[in-house]
């Protein structure tokens, strides 16, 4: 018997078999394993969203915690899905860019509409992450100042210099906003 199997036998805590989480209001019960439809222990939430569930709105860029393009909401707070293991998301409530539209009418969130109205993107790759960071801020503070908007978006990078339009788009939906 190899070292590893001896250790497996003595294991005190066992590895979970499933993980249940809510994604965009829908409960997902995912099996943990090595088959294509299953979630591996090593899968990041970003990988699961894009590759297992087909929610490709969340973008993969640096995969290393540095750019913010993979930002999603976890229990209302902005987090990086590339640095989060799916198997550790049990019981969490996740919102991605796909989950912002009105569930009944399909209408875009006013924040999304404001990005369109202000052309707050060029290539658009960073946009879902930026919108999710802005959404997290607006959930906590519906009347942020420009300084607070910039602070909340400081972890989101854009290569196309959309920042000016982004700040205007967010300020436009801030209740006290411009």
């Amino acid at each position: 018997m190899s070292d590893i199997t001896v250790r497996e036998k003595n294991k005190k805590i066992s590895q979970a078999k499933r993980v249940t989480l809510i994604i965009n209001g829908e409960q997902r019960n995912l099996e943990i394993g090595h088959l294509p439809h299953q979630v591996e222990t090593t899968h990041t939430l970003l990988h699961t969203l894009r590759e297992t569930l087909g929610l490709t709105g969340t973008k993969l860029t640096c995969d290393n915690g540095a750019c913010g393009s993979c930002t999603v909401l976890m229990d209302g707070k902005a987090i990086l899905s590339c640095m989060t293991l799916t198997v550790e998301c049990g019981g969490k409530d996740i919102t991605t860019i796909e989950g912002l539209k009105d569930r009944d009418t399909g209408a875009l969130d006013p924040l999304q509409q404001s990005f369109i109205d202000h052309t707050a993107f060029q290539c658009g790759f960073c946009t879902p992450g930026i919108i999710m960071s802005a959404k997290a801020l607006l959930n906590e503070n519906s009347t942020p100042t420009e300084v607070q908007v910039k602070e909340a978006l400081s972890g989101n990078f854009c290569r196309c210099i959309s920042h000016y339009q982004v700040v205007r788009a967010v300020m436009a939906v801030s209740e006290g906003g411009a």
């Binding site: 250790r7 294991k11 005190k12 805590i13 590895q15 979970a16 222990t41 090593t42």
Partner: peptide, 24 residues
């Protein structure tokens, strides 16, 4: 990422037991 086993520790002693069990 290359594969690893994954455990959820519920207490500090469970975490230490798991570290000991995997011998560091």
């Amino acid at each position: 990422m290359r594969s690893f086993s994954h455990l959820n520790a519920r207490t500090v002693s469970e975490a230490i037991a798991a570290l000991v069990q995997f011998d560091g």
